[in-house]
Computed example of a mutant assay.
Amino acid sequence: MKKCVIAAALLSAFSAMPAMADTIAGVYVGAQGWRTSTSGGFADDNTVADFNFDDKTQGAYYIALEHPIPFVPNLKLGRTGLDTSGATTLDSSFTFEGDLYTAASTVATQVNLDATDIILYYEIFDNDLVSLDLGINGKYIDGSLSVADEASDTRGTADFSGIVPMAYSRVQFGLPFTGLGAYAEGSYLSFDDHKISDYQIALTYSFIESLAVDMTVQLGYRNVDIDIDDLDDVYADMSYDGGFIGVEVHF
């Protein structure tokens, strides 16, 4: 009898901690096509130039593991491409890699940038109507910035990388028995003169729901702002935003 009481107590304590872990282990795999408009620019000091960039379709991918182990956070890994390029007739002069680019000159710019998210999070609560996740995101930014003035044969490239710790949250809503839902997800950091944010909102529809696999389509909007001062001697203030469509598979 005593063993039954102890077992019941342990089971009750375990089920009382939905905030710490998912009650059913699962793997989520997703991919998105994101059409971005890009604004802003970069320099090698805080006089950041303002460039014209072409719109481009970016790819974003993620995988998440949720498990029933108490106190151990769930894990989500994501990767987003943030490449863009363009040509600009400068309104004002700026310096990059020690070279001066003068006002009224036309320069070509190239941005090759990847953002990798390593997210550790807990489910604060989770049900068919609403769920809330909170955690931290170690966003690793790695890329290169290039500028060239063909008229003067002046050109320069700067590489930079760094891990940025960010707060992470996600809230999701659902309409039971319809397959319809919505979510808002984001990461944010502000310290010293660095400000970085990454958020998205989307409507979702689960068109396959079974014991073996669920499949959901997403239609939403995403915005990424990167404002960095002196990261590997690079100053940048850039914003990416636009609509995306995606699909997620839950095993």
Rank of each mutant, 00 (worst) to 15 (best):
Q58L: 08
I69K: 04
L120V: 07
H194N: 09
D117I: 09
D128I: 14
I24P: 07
G26P: 05
D153N: 15
H194I: 11
Y140L: 14
D117F: 05
D198E: 08
D214R: 15
F71E: 02
Y121R: 02
M238D: 05
I119Q: 02
F96K: 01
F125V: 12
E185H: 03
I201R: 01
A13E: 15
T157H: 07
F160I: 10
I69T: 08
A115E: 14
F53L: 04
L82A: 07
D99C: 08
A21H: 03
A151I: 13
D193A: 00
G174Q: 12
F94I: 07
M238F: 06
S146W: 10
A43M: 04
F125W: 10
S206G: 12
P68C: 02
P73Q: 03
V213C: 06
S152Q: 14
F251C: 02
L211F: 11
T88K: 04
S190H: 11
R155H: 13
T38Q: 09
A13D: 11
V171R: 00
V171W: 01
M238E: 07
A104K: 15
I118M: 11
V29N: 01
F191I: 14
P176F: 09
F14E: 13
D22S: 14
L145G: 04
R155D: 09
S239D: 12
M17Y: 11
V247K: 01
V29A: 02
A158H: 13
H67A: 00
E97V: 12
A148G: 05
I228D: 00
L180N: 13
P18C: 05
K3V: 11
A49N: 03
Y205R: 12
D55G: 10
Q32M: 11
L180P: 11
S15Q: 14
K2T: 12
M17E: 07
Y62L: 05
L75W: 04
S131V: 04
I245D: 02
S144V: 09
Y121I: 03
S105F: 10
D159A: 07
V107Y: 02
M215V: 14
E185G: 01
V213S: 06
D83H: 10
A43V: 08
P176K: 15
K195N: 01
S206H: 14
I63V: 06
E248F: 08
A108M: 11
A49T: 06
L113V: 09
T106D: 04
G246F: 02
T116Y: 10
T102Y: 12
C4W: 11
G186S: 03
A212M: 12
V72S: 01
N52H: 13
N137V: 06
V171E: 00
S197L: 10
R222M: 02
L82F: 08
L113I: 09
T216A: 00
L77S: 06
G242N: 13
I24E: 13
V224F: 08
Y122H: 02
D230G: 01
M17N: 09
V247F: 00
I163M: 15
A19C: 10
H250R: 14
D83I: 12
T178M: 10
Y101H: 05
L132K: 00
I226C: 00
Y28I: 12
T95M: 02
Y183T: 04
P73I: 05
N127Y: 11
D237V: 07
F125H: 11
S131T: 08
R79A: 07
W34G: 01
D214C: 06
D214E: 13
T95Q: 03
C4L: 14
